[in-house]
Design a binder for these strands. Sequence first.
DNA 1: GCGTAGTCTGACGGCGCTGTCATACAGCAG
DNA 2: CTGCTGTATGACAGCGCCGTCAGACTACGC
Lengths: 368, 368
Amino acid sequence: MASAPRRTEAPPRSVEVARLAGVSQKTVSRVFNDEPYVSEEARRRVREAADELGYRLNNAARALASGRSRSIGVVALGTAGYGVASLLVGIERAVRDAGYALRVVNTLEGEPAGIASAVDSLLDQGVDGIVVSEPVDDGEVCVRVDVPVLFLGAPPVFAVRRTVTAGVGADLLARAATDHLLDLGHATVHHLAGPQRWYAARDRLKGWRAALVARGRMQPPVIEGDWSAASGYAAGRELASDTSMTAVFAAGDDMAIGLIQALVEAGRRVPDDVSVIGFDDNPVFAYVNPPLTTMRQPFDAAAKEGVRLLVHAIEKPEADLPPATAPPIELVVRSSTAPPPEHCPRPEASPGERSSRTSPVTVGPPVT
Amino acid sequence: MASAPRRTEAPPRSVEVARLAGVSQKTVSRVFNDEPYVSEEARRRVREAADELGYRLNNAARALASGRSRSIGVVALGTAGYGVASLLVGIERAVRDAGYALRVVNTLEGEPAGIASAVDSLLDQGVDGIVVSEPVDDGEVCVRVDVPVLFLGAPPVFAVRRTVTAGVGADLLARAATDHLLDLGHATVHHLAGPQRWYAARDRLKGWRAALVARGRMQPPVIEGDWSAASGYAAGRELASDTSMTAVFAAGDDMAIGLIQALVEAGRRVPDDVSVIGFDDNPVFAYVNPPLTTMRQPFDAAAKEGVRLLVHAIEKPEADLPPATAPPIELVVRSSTAPPPEHCPRPEASPGERSSRTSPVTVGPPVT
DNA sequence: GCGTAGTCTGACGGCGCTGTCATACAGCAG
DNA sequence: CTGCTGTATGACAGCGCCGTCAGACTACGC
C-alpha cells in the first residue's frame, strides 16, 4: 500500500543521494568506493547530499552484489584467559586496520562439535576468510571450506582452498625459556606442559625438549596441566617431593602461579630452592611473591602478521604468500628464577655448550 | 562469457537446489527458514538436494531481502583483562544462543573517537542491535542510532530508538564487599576505586559509600587506580604509611594484588594488619599469597540477561521490555580478609546496626 | 452438491548495491 | 579535420534471497 513517497522512516538509499546531488546512482557508488573517474565537483556534491540525508552504504546489498562481505571470522576459545584474550584483541585490531569487519564465534572447549561447527557457522555468515585462534587437535575435523583460513599457532587441519599459518613462535620461546634456566646453572629443567590437544602446548613442549637435547641434558617426565592455576597447584604437590628438581618451565603463567604456591606450601622456596618460569607475561604477575619470570608472547605481532597473510590470500588468491617475518622473542626476568642452590649438582660446563641463541633480555616492570 | 552451464566453481544457489528437488525456489526458502506449510515429503527432498549440492543460505541476500542481518554488534574494550574478557565470552554465548551472529569492535581506551566511532562502524556493518560492554563516559557522545542498544553495566548515553540497560549489579556487589569487611569488625573501609570514567567504577564507589553511610562510618578519601596491578601497587605505597587503615576494598582483583604487594613490602601484613578484598574473582588469585577474598561478578548471568532484553527489543519493538532479574551476589571468602588487629579501635556495636543484607557467602576454591 | 477453512505451492517483484558496457567530451598528434 | 587516448558519467542487468499474493487441492459440515 501507499507506494507514493516511500516509507517515511527508512534509511536513505544511494539513489536518493544521487537525486539530491544531481548525479546518477552509479556515481554515488563510485564516490563511496573511492573509485577513480569522478570529478572533484561531483564528489563534493555527493558527500554533501549524503551527509544531509544521513546516508550509509548498505552492507548487505554491497556484499550481495560484489560477492564479498569484507568480513573475517575468528574461531576463538571461550575462555577469559590472558593469552587467549590478548590474541583476540590483537586480531580485532589487525582485522580492522585491514579494512575488514570481525565476526567471532567461540568454541567452548569440550564441546562436541568444536572447531568444525564454529567454522561452519562462520561460513554460513559468509565471511571472506577465517582465523582459527589457538587451534586444538579435534581429531578428524573435516569441513569443506572455500575461503582462506589462517591458523594462528598451528598446522593446517582442514582441506582448504588456501591455508596460511602464523604463530607466536612458541617453540622458540619455549626453548629460550628453558635456556634461561639452564644458563643459570640448573642441571635440567622440568616441564609443566599445557594440554597436549593444543598445538600451542605441543610447540612449547617441543621447544623445551629441544633445549635439553641440545645440551644433552636429562629429560624429566612431563606433567600435563590444563592451563589453570589449579592444575599447576596439583602438579606442584606432585613435584615438591622430588628434591632433585631445581627448575620448572611452566607452559602458562597461571599454571606457574599455582605451581609456586604448592611448592611454597611444601616448604620449598622459590627461587632459592626451585626456579620457576612462566609463559605469557600477564602483567599482574609482576606483583606477586615472587614476581614471576616469564616469556612474553608477541600476541600483537603474531596477530598482525597472520592477518596480513590472510588478507593477502583473500585479495590476491593467485599471488604467492609474502614471506613471514619471525616474531620477536622476549624474556622477562623477574624474581622467580635464580641459580640452583649450592648443594645441588652443577653440570660441568662442557666446552662448546652454550645457550643456543642469545635471547634478547628484557627486565619486566619491576616492583620499583 | 559462457553463460551456459553457470560458472563452474561457485556456491550453489537455492534455485539450483529447487531444481534438483523438483520444487520451486520459494519452497527451498521455506524449508531453510523453518516456515510452515511445507509437506514433509518436500522438506525431505529439499534437505537431500541441499546436502548433495553443499548448499548454504547466502546471508547477504537474505539480509538484503529481509532487511535484517541477524547479527548483533558489540563494542568492547581492547584489553585482555579478566573481567572484560569474561563479559565478552558471556555475550558471545548469549548472542549465539539467541540465533544471532556476533560482530566485535574494540575501542582502545584513550582513542579520540572512542565509543561513538565504534558504534558507527557497527552501524555501517548493518547490525540489528548493539551491545556496549562496560561503557565509559566519553563526554558528549552523539550518534544517530536506529537500532536498539544495550548498555551492559551503565546508563544510556545516546539518543537511541530503544535503549536497554542491564548490569552486574556492581553497586550491590560493592556494598556486600564493604559489608563483609565491616562485619569482620573494621571501623571503616578504604576504597581503591577504578577510573571514574567507567560507569562500572562509579557504581562500585557508590556501593562502597552506601555501605559506610548505612552504618554511619567515616569515609576515608578515595584513591583512584586504572585497574592495573601497577596502579594498585602505587596506591598501596601511599596507603601503607597510614597505620589507622585496616581494610581496603579494591575495585578490581589486579589492583588488589598490586596493593597487597606494596603493603607487604612496607611491612604491613595481610590480612593480619590490613584486610584487602578484590572484585571480579579471577580464579588464579586463589593461588597467591594470601589467597584473595573477592566478589564474584556474575558475568554470564548479566550477559545473558542483557542480551535477552536486547533481543526482545529487536524482535518485538512495540512490546514492553520484560522485567529484569537481579543478578546473584557471591562473596568469595579466602584469606586476604580477617578481623582487624587487637590494638585497633573497634566500633562499639551500636544496637540495630548490622549488615544491610545477608549476603550469600561462597567459599571459593580453597587451596585444598 | 456447495461453501468454507485449512494446507501446500509457485510466480513474481523487488531489496540496494556493483559490474559491465556504452556514451560523451576534452586534449592532442598527425 | 580525423583518429586516438584518457577522463567522466550513466543505463542496465543482475547478485540470491524473501514477501506478497494467487492458485490448487483437501477435508469437512451442511
